[in-house]
Design a protein around this nucleic acid. Structure first.
Length: 422
RNA sequence: GGAAAGGUGGGUGAGUGGCUGAAACCAACAGUUUGCUAAACUGUCGUACGGGAAACUGUACCGGGGGUUCGAAUCCCCCCUUUUCCGCCA
């Protein structure tokens, strides 16, 4: 969430930025500022009362030691009074704090200055594109037909044992998954990211730490008996590794990577968006995460973008990069680049990576800070990106590299697969 | 799942109701001394929120949350967690 002092001191700037999201936040921001002001006033009152009470208590202690019992008892009257007063103030104060928190949860991150105003996905800017998107011949098949033809993925078996959106990968289909995961992890490691194997379930505090809660409550699978959430992305456990941590400047940037399955309820999805591998409840992804000094984060975002570009080039896939407009950006993000690969048989673009800088928005909730050379403590910037999500990569790989004889595996992937063709 | 013992600052660890935001030691940082290194000595050395131009100052925090008390790291209750023992088990 945003920091109140920032909103107080840069109100205009924040509102101008937020307006790019095609929604008016001025009323909420104004409430935040005024609630916070009341909060501070009340806090001050409380502090003064407690200070008085502390002083009296000390005196009472001294009097007891000197044996002046009656005098001490006399002073208890005032502390009792103060206690009553404090109780009232504390109640009001916690109400205000709760109110403030709820208001802050409603305000998304302020978009970066390079982000344009926009109502939705159609206004995203294409900032880069690569590869040949000329369509294939008439015999081209969509990936769900290729999967069936070559017995790579059985969607119906998944329905039987679990439900829609939980495919079963078989034979070369399963090996291709494993190959891609290993390929992505190896590439990440070469780029300086430290591999982590993290839990696939997280507690509530972690959900709040990265902002999935309370914003996307309904999108996560929740295990009621133990009050745990299945992770929707490795971003959650990886970033929360550094919750409540005070770092030294020289530790930054911290570069993490990890493979995990991702679980998403995807409530409200429908139609051709969910066909085949396009949208699943469980899918595999390798994620990259960075924690950085504030002044370095945008350069590091570029590094991450270049890393993902490299992966797609090695997989020989046509792709483009979009800079998301205000209206299409995620709640917690300040700048997001989406990567889309071209699906030759479906003749549409499929999102395979989303790479973002969250600036201090997550770090504020996470309480992840570092001590600079000047001794000042400040929040880190957090960044993350998919590198990469598997299902649509598999879809694009199958569709784009199909020919009369089957499907060709890109050279970079062959050592990981152990086969050249499907 | 049952039982017992723990959880204190970057680390080790003292502290059973007021003199404790917390001893001591280690680490770290700054300085003095010194051919260099080392050693010795001196000083600094938690976080958050608030007030103040600043020096400085108020409050809160000893796993988390409640409670008792004029006053809680210290007493009571609940929860989390660690270790050990038992049970179960890949």
């Amino acid at each position: 969430m945003l920091q109140v002092p920032y909103l107080r001191e840069n109100t205009e700037k924040a509102l101008t930025g937020l307006a790019k999201r095609n929604k008016d936040f001025s009323a909420t921001v104004q409430s935040i500022i005024s609630v916070d002001e009341s909060r501070r006033k009340l806090q001050n009152e409380l502090d003064n009362l407690l200070a008085e009470s502390n002083k009296i208590s000390k005196t009472i202690g001294d009097l007891f030691k000197e044996g002046k019992r009656e005098e001490a008892d006399g002073m208890k009257v005032r502390t009792t009074e103060i206690k009553e007063e404090c109780k009232g103030i504390e109640t009001n104060l916690s109400q205000l704090e709760e109110e403030l928190k709820q208001l802050l949860y409603q305000v998304p991150n302020v978009p970066h200055e390079s982000v344009v105003f926009g109502k939705g996905a159609e206004e995203n800017e294409v900032v880069y594109s690569s590869g040949d998107v000329t369509s294939l011949g008439e015999s081209k098949l969509p990936h769900w037909e290729l999967c069936e033809k070559h017995k790579l993925i059985d969607f119906e078996l998944g329905v039987k044992i679990t439900g829609a959106g939980f495919p079963v990968y078989i034979g070369k289909g399963a090996r291709l998954q494993r190959a891609l995961i290993n390929f992505f992890l190896e590439e990440a490691q070469k780029a300086g990211y430290t591999e982590h194997q993290v839990p696939h379930m997280v507690n509530e505090a972690s959900g709040y730490g990265t902002g999935q809660l309370p914003d996307k409550e309904g999108q996560m699978y929740h295990v009621g008996v133990d009050d745990l959430y299945l992770i929707p992305t490795a971003e959650v456990p990886l970033t929360n590794l550094y919750r409540d941590v005070l770092l030294k400047e020289e530790q930054l940037p911290i570069k993490l990577t990890g493979y995990t399955p991702c679980f998403r309820r995807e409530a409200g999805s429908y139609g051709k968006d969910v066909r085949g591998l396009n949208r699943l409840h469980q899918f595999d992804k390798v994620e990259i995460v960075q924690l950085s000094k504030q002044e370095d984060s945008y350069a590091l975002l570029e590094d991450m973008v270049n890393h993902v570009k490299g992966l797609l080039n090695k997989l020989e896939l046509p792709f483009r990069i979009l800079r998301l407009c205000g209206g299409d950006m995620g709640f917690t993000s300040s700048l997001t680049y989406d990567f889309e690969v071209y699906s030759a048989a479906q003749e549409r673009w499929l999102e395979v990576s989303s790479t973002s800088n969250f600036e201090t928005f997550q770090a504020n909730r996470l309480k992840c800070r570092y001590k600079g050379a000047d001794g000042k403590t400040q929040l880190v910037h957090t960044l993350n990106g998919s590198a990469l999500a598997l299902p649509r990569i598999v879809a694009a790989l199958l569709e784009n590299h199909q020919d009369e004889n089957g499907v060709r595996i890109p050279h970079a992937l062959v050592p990981y697969c152990g086969f050249e063709r499907i």
